[in-house]
Design a protein around this nucleic acid. Structure first.
Ligand SMILES: [Zn+2]
Ligand SMILES: [Zn+2]
Ligand SMILES: [Zn+2]
Ligand SMILES: [Zn+2]
Lengths: 142, 142
DNA sequence: TGTGCAAATGCGAATCATTCCCATTTGGAA
DNA sequence: TTCCAAATGGGAATGATTCGCATTTGCACA
């Protein structure tokens, strides 16, 4: 199946209309290993001669995030969010506070912990945000 | 030792001048189990007839955070931060997405995990942000 | 294959937490 | 007490994100 059909299906499964903008945004995300900000995506689309409004980029990302098609990553000590297409894989990132590079970590260390919290606090856990920061191996010596 | 002297020491240990605003902010934080936003603190100070500028509240909180005297908690799906006096204790919180209540969790599940990341990625971990969200026991049935 | 309407989009204005600027005040070392 | 770097006040600026509303478009159904 070609990518566009896969995107159509993803959208349909979320009761979302399949529009060229949504497809285009999904394509940009698919072409990047690194999570992108709304503005990053906006710029890339412009470079591909796709006319779109920045508001629409935000709206689409928000919608896709709600439908759990795209994940939203909050960057520590910043008020920016970045987004990535998750292949059903919940994951986290390492942020280098010096060069600001993001490194994806596969897997999640918190599954057991969430169960523990539910038992201990009678809390129904829906999810969590986790970002780890420090120095990458290039920046380790400061 | 009375609280004010303790605060003086905390500030001195961070090479910070001991000012009435800093002390007042530390006192507000000390009087609250729940983390407070800059504006929360600002309002409480006003109620206590303490004249202060909101900018100063932000600056003081930022400074105390840098010196590791106060911890900064990012609220999921919001661009607000809240702050708390940590008694040397690194901790996390459960956020109820319905009533927006925050519940403190003692301890941290990530110590081992950070070591693992250092080994696996050659990354020097400095810290992490973790917030867990879901429904508290009052809101569990939606 | 055309119609209708809810959903999606464009675009500029608005929001809102936070930061910045710069003139004034203040803590505390000497 | 003097003096200066550090801290503060207050208002403007910032910057990411959201909102309002007019216009367009996908797509279910006839
Ligand atoms: Zn780096
Ligand atoms: Zn996780
Ligand atoms: Zn609740
Ligand atoms: Zn922790």
């Amino acid at each position: 199946m070609d990518p566009e059909n896969r995107f159509d299906e993803m959208l349909k499964s979320g009761n979302l209309k399949s529009t060229k903008h949504r497809i285009a945004i999904l394509e940009v995300l698919k072409g990047n290993k690194i999570p992108l900000s709304a503005e990053d995506i906006y710029i890339r689309l412009k470079q591909n001669n796709i006319s779109i409004s920045l508001s629409t980029v935000y709206r689409v990302l928000e919608t896709l995030h709600e439908k759990d098609i795209v994940s939203k990553v909050n960057i520590p000590d910043s008020n920016r969010a970045v987004y990535e297409l998750h292949g059903n894989e919940h994951r986290h990132h390492l942020l280098c506070v010096k060069c600001r590079k993001l490194l994806a970590i596969d897997g999640c260390p918190l599954e057991e912990y969430e169960k523990l919290l539910e038992d201990r606090f009678g809390f129904t856990v829906k999810g969590h945000n986790l970002e780890v920061y420090g120095y990458c191996n290039n920046c380790a010596g400061y």
